[in-house]
Design a protein around this nucleic acid. Sequence first.
RNA 1: GUCGCCAUGGUCAAGUGGUCAAGACGUAGCCCUCUCACGGCUGAGUCGGGGGUUCGAUCCCCCCUGGCGAUACCA
Length: 557
Amino acid sequence: MNNLELAKLIFKDELKAPDEYELIYPPRELPAGAMVTRLGPSPTGFIHLGNLYGAFVDMRMAKQSDGVFYLRIEDTDDKRYVDGAVDSIISALDFFGINFDEGAESDGERGAYGPYYQSLRGEIYRAYAKKMVEDGYAYPCFLTSEEIAEIRSAQEAAKETPGVYGKYAKYRNEEFELVKALIEEGREYVLRLKSSGKTDVSPDEMSQITVFDAIRGELVMPENNQDIVILKSNGMPTYHFAHAVDDHLMRTTHVVRGAEWLSTLPVHVELFEKLGFDLPIYCHTAQLMKIDEETGQKRKLSKRLDSELSLDYYMSQGYHPLAVREYLLTILNSDYEEWRIANPDRANEEFDFSVEKMNNSGALFDILKLQDISKDTLLRLRGDEIADFVANWASKYRREQYDVIAQDLEYLARIMDIGRSGAKPRKDLIYAAQIADFISYFFDEFFVIKDSIPPEVPTGDVPLILSKYLDSFDFSDDSQQWFEKIREIARDAGYAEKPKDYKKEPDKYKGHVGHVSTVIRIAITGLSQSPDIWEIQQVLGEERTRARIEKFAALYR
RNA sequence: GUCGCCAUGGUCAAGUGGUCAAGACGUAGCCCUCUCACGGCUGAGUCGGGGGUUCGAUCCCCCCUGGCGAUACCA
């Protein structure tokens, strides 16, 4: 048989037989129903919310079924490689709570089904490619990129499906002697799949394949008829071929990937078939989308364009990983939100996640929703936990503030807890960058007067109000006693004790107690709007409070 | 162009052959209130279009439109 000679001609090195690999990587011994999933990033170093979204699905499926979730680095394209990328991918994923049972690690790898770097699996791919040639399912193709471009434009002109297939696959059934001569001559070539799909019929006459997708149900698609490349001229496999070999040998049960792979599914089905592998269960997730600012159109998240959606962005803004996970869960399984409302204190791991509940259409990323969820998520954390988180964030992203706010973590924790107890806790805290700005007035180093006193208060009243306040000020007053004194000051100075009184009879008063308290509020926080002043004072301490009042009053003397 | 996937308010979405078409975010107003938040109440806002099938379609079928994706020796 020529195929055997051809295989020998192409693969001169010693290669294991595929059967040996079957033995080296036997089926996993796992409980019934256990799912084996994987994440296969290419090492560009860039990873965005969409990747995290998919990684989440993988991890939940494996964890919920007592299966295995592993990391495989898909570095078959050297053009894509970025130094240090694997490390940054792993640490970013880890930050958001994605961790692996096996696979690539920053200092090597772990697990019995490796190597987990595709660049290290060359021999394995070649072994299976050789078998493809022997079986007559693959052949060397010497078409240059110029020739392929010509074929393409001819096909486009003739309104035919573009690609290398059927009569356009010039070397598909080439004479052995000629192939041999070309190879010996040193001509570059790729290895192509010899597709058995029909090529001489119109698209609607093509045979259909049906594939079950765990998210989308039964998919009916035309069979593949393209002689796609399986081994590039440098000997590396294409994604398609590596996917088939790796997911088989690593015994992946569920392939979770974005919907952009749907159109190549027929290729993969044919590959698995020709290789003699069982098909994994595919789970094609909808893509996370965003609105393109320039065009105003919905589009898939892009690595190139959407740096603000990179995981780095959320880390640098200081979104809490839990918040991001909560958000992702709400778009992954829409009943998660209701579950969360019903179970505010349970860990999200207890939620029964399922791929069947996933939506088929792409969700638009909504930062407002993330922020809302973030507020609620931070509410479930203790003040000291948030303080630690913010301090940690500042140490990386805001050095100059870190030195100040992290000096006294207990103080920081008390700041975080302001207004958070009781039945209707405040929801001021969203993400670290916002929190750092929000609390800056608690530190003398950052304290500035930003707002001006309300127009209802004549300038001359300011020192009056403040000196009275200072005179009657007793740090040990409780909240009610404290406010009673403010009312007194307001009344004595000609302001209504209740805003309603002022509303009813505006001519009778200069303003109301709210205006008076605003003066005090500005003196203490520099802002006309803030959480409860009494609580702020309790955290600031008596000394700092008095100092600020005095300093502000001095401005009006 | 061709092929594929998708289609319920601004966003995420539940949903069924007969519903006043859930809920969340956002938004408007009111209430609570020393400010701001929080909370409460109320409101505005949707089944892309056209054909069928049916006593009846948001739901089932077809066409169109729109969005997204694929069309590489990238993944």
